[in-house]
């Protein structure tokens, strides 16, 4: 089941390091955000405003100084997937095994790993590369594997951390459509958070766009994208949304 995500009164400060000059100002202070199960929201904003940090906090890779992040079930019972900017595949496992490996999880039944993997490989168009090692694939193909891996566990929550920013525009465009297909194809759509610098991508994929800015960061604008799905990348309404985001940012 997909899950609500409730972020309340979040505070996070990075001490020292390269950002010494700004180290005293927290990245967030009292930030709250609530996402309904099955929604996909986008976080946009200038570099360093804390988008990726927010994602890391939700993913459990980092801890807040204050505040909490709640899901419908406890953290340990949530099936959470991330598509990172880089595919982060295990280069020494074949494409197929890279997807199957996520079935070897803590306290989870394996499920029909072989069947699901086979099906996902077909859906991302990599069946013929099932036994290939990732280093022998193109960047776009590797990211397809990462996307398939993210959907393999039928996640409750799907975090997308600039998933297409390392790819050329044509490949990125295809993968955005693929992601939409997979997301819509899930029995229960995972609750999604997308972090991106591409405003058109945000408009295309998200139900709602949060514009983060300032330090400590606040949501300077929240833009609803009320468009039916599946969406088309060339829908003129997207350009309108794009313009509104840019206005909010500048």
């Amino acid at each position: 089941m997909s899950s609500d995500i409730t972020v309340s009164d979040l505070k996070k400060t990075f001490a020292g390091g390269a950002r010494r000059a700004r180290s005293n100002a927290p990245l967030f202070d009292g930030l709250s955000l609530s996402i309904t199960a099955g929604e996909l929201v986008a976080l946009v904003g200038p570099s360093g405003c804390g988008k990726s940090t927010m994602l890391n906090l939700v993913a459990g890779l980092d801890r807040p100084d204050r505040g909490e992040i709640r899901f419908d079930h406890g953290q340990a019972d949530i099936d959470l997937s991330v598509v990172f900017q880089q595919p982060r595949l295990l280069d020494w496992l074949t494409v197929e095994d890279n997807i199957r490996v996520v079935f070897e999880r803590d306290g989870k039944k394996k499920g029909n790993a072989a069947h699901i993997t086979h099906d996902l490989l077909a859906r991302v168009g990599l069946t013929e590369h099932a036994h290939t090692y990732p280093q022998f694939l193109s960047g776009g193909q590797r990211q397809r594997v990462a996307i398939a891996r993210a959907f393999a566990i039928s996640p409750d929550i799907l975090l997308l951390d600039e998933p297409f920013s390392a790819l050329d525009e044509l490949t990125a465009r295809r993968l955005r459509l693929l992601l939409q297909d997979l997301w819509l194809g899930e029995g229960h759509r995972p609750t999604g958070i997308l972090v991106t610098h591409n405003m058109l991508e945000a408009a295309f994929l998200a139900d709602r766009i949060y514009v983060l800015s300032g330090r400590p960061a606040t949501f300077s604008s929240i833009i609803d994208v009320d468009l039916p799905r599946p969406r088309s990348l060339d829908d003129p309404v997207l350009f309108d949304v794009h313009r509104r985001i840019m206005q909010a940012l500048t």
Binding site: S81, Q86, V102, R105, D106
Partner: peptide
Amino acid sequence: EVIEMSRVFRLHRT
């Protein structure tokens, strides 16, 4: 990054 991936997907220790 690989370690983080294994943590996010909560891969079993074995």
